[in-house]
């Protein structure tokens, strides 16, 4: 079984690049435009596609992603259609795909069934935002059985003893949120990022990516100095939000922004 996630990080490392992790909400603003958006990002050289599964109550997300989820759900997006979107992306690309989701969406199907559907569609990893390792015993076992990689978040407030717990639960990569707060675009990146990333590395050999607040090519470059990957979300989602009524303009804006940001790798 190929490990798309590990391979992508290994390749980026050997080429001395930062892996560009691109976040979009699946189905934003509708299934068709969302597929075009994924294709655009893939064409522009992103390294990993993180797909947000739209949820009615995304409490870990800021306004940008909340509105993206609202647009997706309003257009009739549901979980089956999210799986369908993944299948279509798989037809055109072997990039690793990670779900960024909420536990109720998983629980509604049952962990095993959900993982089976996701795996068949072509998903490589799972980040469940409101499922800390403490509540994830059955989930971790189910992921191991389904050969699905796990992704967990580490925060600036996470103490060393929790970094150990988080590292032990992770099989894909660790996602360090560079600033406290929910997702969204910010002007500057937190200063203690380098220290925290090296602290995380004391607990794991897995890749570490940094996200939350990266909106400019120089941010990507700055993150690249200390981390294996940089996550860009809101800056991309905004391209779709600002052109919600005009899919063509939305894709054009996304094309320009993603080109500019990927250049920061």
């Amino acid at each position: 079984m190929t490990d798309r996630i590990a391979d992508a990080f290994a390749r980026a490392k050997s080429e001395e690049r930062t892996l560009f992790v691109a976040y979009l909400c699946a189905g934003d603003p509708d299934a068709e435009t969302s597929f075009a958006a994924c294709r655009t990002l893939i064409d522009n050289g992103i390294g990993l596609l993180e797909l947000g599964v739209p949820f009615s109550d995304p409490l870990a997300d800021g306004k940008t992603n909340q509105h993206a989820a609202e647009r997706a759900l309003a257009s009739g997006m549901n979980q089956q259609k999210v799986f369908e979107l993944v299948r279509r992306v798989r037809e055109i690309s072997e990039l690793p795909i990670v779900f960024y989701t909420y536990y109720n969406l998983v629980y509604a199907y049952g962990e095993k069934e959900y993982l089976k559907l996701a795996k068949e569609a072509g998903v490589d990893g799972m980040l469940v935002l409101d499922l800390p390792p403490e509540e994830a015993q059955t989930w971790l076992a189910a992921c191991a059985e389904a050969e699905m990689k796990t992704v967990f978040i580490a925060a600036p407030t996470t103490p060393p003893e929790r970094l150990a717990i988080i590292s032990a639960a992770t099989t894909g990569f660790i996602y360090y949120v560079s600033q406290l707060g929910v997702t969204g675009v910010r002007d500057s990146l937190a200063g203690d990022m380098a220290d925290k990333v090296s602290e995380i590395r004391q607990h794991t050999d897995l890749p570490v990516v940094v996200g939350f607040g990266i909106s400019r090519p120089e941010h990507v470059a700055e993150v690249g100095k200390v981390a294996d990957g940089a996550v860009v979300g809101s800056a991309l989602v905004n391209c779709l939000a600002e052109n919600a009524d005009n899919p063509e303009a939305a894709i054009k804006a996304l094309d320009a922004t993603s080109r500019e940001l990927v250049a920061g790798c």
Binding site: A60, L129, D130
Partner: peptide, 18 residues
Amino acid sequence: RGHFGQFGGMYVPETLMT
């Protein structure tokens, strides 16, 4: 850990756990 049988628990983003 805050469980009432199978119910309850701590299902929150990592930023709130500490």
